[in-house]
Amino acid sequence: MTTYVFRVWLQPHPPLGFEPDEEVWHDLEIDGSHTLATFHEAIFQAFDRWESHAYEFITRDDNGIALRSYVHPMLYDGGPSWRTMDDEEIDRFIEQAVPDDASEEAKERFRELQSNPPMEGNAAETTIDELDPEDLGALSYTFDMGDSWEHYIELQDTRTGSMDGDPVVVDEQGTAPSQYPDLDE
């Protein structure tokens, strides 16, 4: 078995008043046999959240292209990871949002994944090892689909052997905002 350390960055969220002066992140150590649902719980606790909501993980390649979605068990229906885009939508997205220096291979991969989305995964049934973290570009994680707290997750370290117990925070920087900031302040 393998133990992983992932850095989970909380992305700025101006509409909710979260624009930190420094990056806010937590390094979480998690066993490869833990599920994405367990990883969600560890992130939930690390960022001091208290009210549970839906969430989604998206695996990404080295170019940041979404490869597959893994959703909260109550949202899982076994359908496509995302809505299929038609050629016109894909062309518009590539023109407006994809960096000019992106390779043609990356653009074609994006086009294929948007035209034929892979089936979504169930976060409660997918282990960290199944994601093959050492070959994965990164993960994105969205908590609370209404407020959309966005996180970027990247592998920091890999260790041989299993860890005992639950995932743990091994390092951190910055202060996470309240789950529901008081926007009147």
Rank of each mutant, 00 (worst) to 15 (best):
V5N: 13
V5K: 10
F6P: 06
F6Y: 14
R7A: 08
V8C: 10
V8T: 15
V8L: 06
W9M: 07
W9R: 13
Q11L: 15
Q11C: 15
P12M: 12
H13K: 13
H13R: 13
P14G: 02
L16V: 09
L16T: 11
G17N: 12
G17A: 13
F18Y: 15
F18S: 12
F18R: 11
E19V: 15
E19F: 13
P20L: 12
P20M: 13
P20V: 13
D21I: 12
E23Q: 12
V24M: 05
W25L: 14
W25T: 14
H26T: 00
D27H: 14
D27N: 14
L28D: 04
I30R: 06
I30P: 07
I30N: 05
D31P: 13
D31I: 10
D31L: 09
S33H: 09
S33V: 06
S33I: 04
T35A: 06
L36V: 05
L36F: 04
L36Y: 03
A37P: 06
A37K: 07
T38Y: 01
T38L: 08
H40E: 09
A42D: 08
F44H: 04
Q45A: 15
D48Q: 15
D48G: 11
D48L: 14
D48S: 15
R49T: 09
E51R: 14
S52R: 07
A54S: 12
A54C: 08
E56Y: 00
E56C: 09
F57N: 06
T59L: 05
R60Y: 05
D61P: 11
D61K: 10
D61Y: 11
D61R: 09
N63Q: 14
G64Q: 10
I65Q: 12
I65R: 09
R68D: 08
R68C: 09
R68F: 09
S69A: 14
S69H: 02
V71Y: 03
V71M: 05
V71I: 12
H72C: 05
H72E: 05
P73W: 00
P73I: 02
M74Y: 00
L75K: 03
L75W: 02
Y76G: 03
G78L: 02
P80W: 03
P80M: 01
W82Q: 08
R83Y: 07
R83W: 07
R83I: 10
T84S: 05
M85L: 04
M85F: 02
D87A: 09
E88N: 03
D91V: 01
D91I: 03
R92W: 01
F93A: 00
F93D: 04
F93S: 03
E95C: 03
E95N: 00
E95Y: 00
Q96L: 15
Q96I: 08
A97W: 07
V98E: 04
P99M: 03
P99K: 05
P99N: 05
